[in-house]
Design a protein around this nucleic acid. Structure first.
Lengths: 189, 189
DNA sequence: GTTGTGTGTGGTTGACCACTCACTCTTGGG
DNA sequence: CCCAAGAGTGAGTGGTCAACCACACACAAC
């Protein structure tokens, strides 16, 4: 005798695609595009590997979708930061966005995925395309919302890249002068 | 009837190892640690795949050796730059080293390998170790030879990371404001 | 020239992995 | 109740790749 709750047991394909996108971030974050097996992605999403291929045409399309999803999250996060500093000076807006980004990537997976996307961009045209357009949007957004001069916007992204380095190396585990030099002043949560 | 030249036809294992290290840079530069097949490495070195495994215990050790080799080249290059600006101000020494680095990585493969090493460092402990010690040496060297304040040294590396990004994305092929914002002022040859 | 040592290869193997297919179960509408 | 459409899977398949091994060839020393 079934309970009165009329909950669906099956998800719609769109819902599933969403959960796959979200869980796949941490799957790919570990070993990147080439190093990650579609079985891992399926397992983390709680579905069979075969069903991954019903939801996405192939591994590349899946990875591209995941990367796109991440850029979207970064975009939103920068937007939140900018909103918090609305009306302040350009430098304050940049700082606020940097802060919001730092908070976002306290989720280490998200940051590592950015890094792996950058790597895969070098050899996979489809990935390069999505990463280019992702950074295009980010740069334009940062410039527009902050009104900061080019050089400051450039530095903003340079510092972001430095964050990628220190996270990939796990410098916070290293107690040495060089590690402190690299990570000094970078916010982390 | 053989010619009088008494040239050896076979290399010594050490010589071979060297050539493999050098040619493997461009092999791994393309698709990174996981994406590159040992067959490719062998082909570029002009030897059989089996012999790669006589020269190196396994793929990981090979990759680690290649990464180490690259850090060595970067170290030397920075040394050349510093020597050229000997006796100048800290900032001038940094500039000279930046210049030397820019020249070095006009060989795109070398830069991409750095990037792939950084990616692989996130999941492979042995790679993380060599990349950490590589950056440790570089940071200490740059600090020591330039005598620049911490913040300037940090910026030096941040700009380096930005170089990685623009190269991986191939922004020089893109004629758009965002691409110019990111790559503005970065030397390239 | 024979012998020992080191260079180098062809062929293979066993594991793994992206991708497929035939099939079952669930859901909702008439 | 029936049935069509969609959700989801188990069990492959073909191909690839790291690693191995038995063997062939070059060199140097005697």
């Amino acid at each position: 005798m079934p309970k009165a709750t009329s909950q669906r047991q099956l998800s719609t394909a769109d819902e599933r695609r969403r959960t796959v996108l979200e869980t796949a971030v941490s799957a790919f974050a570990d070993r990147g595009y080439f190093g990650t097996r579609t079985t891992d992605v399926a397992q983390r999403a709680g579905i069979s590997q075969a069903y991954v291929y019903r939801l996405f045409p192939d591994k590349e399309a899946l990875f591209v979708a995941v990367v796109e999803h991440c850029f979207e999250r970064v975009r939103e996060s920068l937007g939140d930061g900018a909103a918090a500093a609305k009306g302040s000076s350009a430098q304050e807006v940049l700082d606020a966005m940097g802060n919001a980004y730092a908070e976002l990537i306290s989720d280490r997976d998200l940051l590592l995925l950015q890094l792996h996307a950058q790597c895969a961009a070098a050899s996979e045209p489809a990935v390069r395309e999505v990463v280019r357009s992702g950074y295009a949007r980010l740069v334009e957004y940062v410039r527009g919302v902050s009104g900061a001069p080019e050089a400051d916007v450039q530095r903003f992204f340079a510092v972001g890249m430095l964050c990628h380095l220190v996270t990939a190396l796990g410098t916070h585990e290293v107690d040495a002068p060089w590690a402190r030099t690299l990570s000094d002043g970078l916010r982390h949560y």
